[in-house]
């Protein structure tokens, strides 16, 4: 894996909200074709890191994507460069219908045929969405909203996907389904940066992982190393 090209590189990332330092100088790389996962306790700074990458919060340090420095790039430009995301809190449009939400995700794509195929694909994964095309996003159940958020990220066909707890609020069957899909899209060429509380599942699909503790990287390694690490087992896998 490490021979592949570096797709995303994060160096000395610092993020703070007022006096609170959420991320304190972390550095890591994501290579083309990898699934990399960030795990860590509540408030460790995982979501903040993703927000920094997608240009949603100001930061110090250097983040580059395909060699291009993202510091001065606006959030919408970053999306246009092929960075898709499922943000924390889902970020769907509550007053738009399911269909409108999905269509918005494809606004920058021109390939009509492929788009139609992608619609079919997300409907196979989440048949519920197909039944509810006209329902307003805000009235969907929690899990249905999560399905919509994940579908939107899939539809935007980014080459890098930032996922903040994609399995949150989903029923057990669907949690397995989501991880299965992740592996699939990864094999089809999408690189994934995954934040998950379900560290067990995350490490099983990931190639590598980083463990965040209070804003710093406490540990990193290949997924199987981390899975076998007794300290990780104790703290994040529930003993």
């Amino acid at each position: 894996m490490s021979t592949a090209e570096v797709l995303l590189s994060v160096q000395d990332l610092d993020i703070s909200y007022g006096n609170i330092k959420a991320v304190k100088g972390i550095s890591f790389d994501v290579h083309e074709g990898e699934i990399v996962t960030l795990i860590g306790a509540n408030g460790a700074g995982k979501s903040s890191t993703l927000r920094g990458i997608s240009g949603m919060v100001p930061y110090h340090g250097k983040i580059s994507y395909r060699g291009k420095d993202l510091h001065k790039t606006a959030a919408d430009k970053i999306v246009a460069m092929g960075v898709a995301q499922v943000p924390e809190g889902r970020g769907i449009f509550g007053n738009l219908t399911v269909l409108e939400n999905l269509k918005l995700a494809t606004w920058q794509r021109k390939d009509k045929v492929e788009i139609a195929r992608d619609f079919e694909r997300v409907f196979t994964i989440f048949p519920r969405l197909k039944e509810r095309l006209k329902q307003l996003g805000g009235t969907l159940s929690g899990g249905e909203q999560q399905m919509l958020a994940v579908s939107r990220a899939l539809m935007s066909r980014g080459s890098l996907m930032l996922l903040d707890e994609p399995s949150m609020g989903l029923a057990p069957v669907l949690v397995r389904e989501i991880f299965h899909v992740l592996r699939e899209i990864n094999q089809a060429g999408t690189t994934v940066l995954l934040v998950e509380q379900n560290a067990n599942m995350a490490l099983r699909v990931a190639n590598r992982g980083y463990v965040l503790e209070t804003g710093t990287i406490a540990l990193s390694g290949t997924a199987s190393e981390l899975l076998g690490n007794p300290r990780i087992k104790e703290a994040y896998l529930g003993g």
């Binding site: 707890e165 509380q197 994040y236 529930g238 003993g239």
Partner: peptide
């Protein structure tokens, strides 16, 4: 209503 959403296994414990 889903008090454990967004918690890791040890936090769920």
């Amino acid at each position: 209503d889903e008090p454990a959403a967004g918690m890791n296994p040890s936090e769920i414990g």
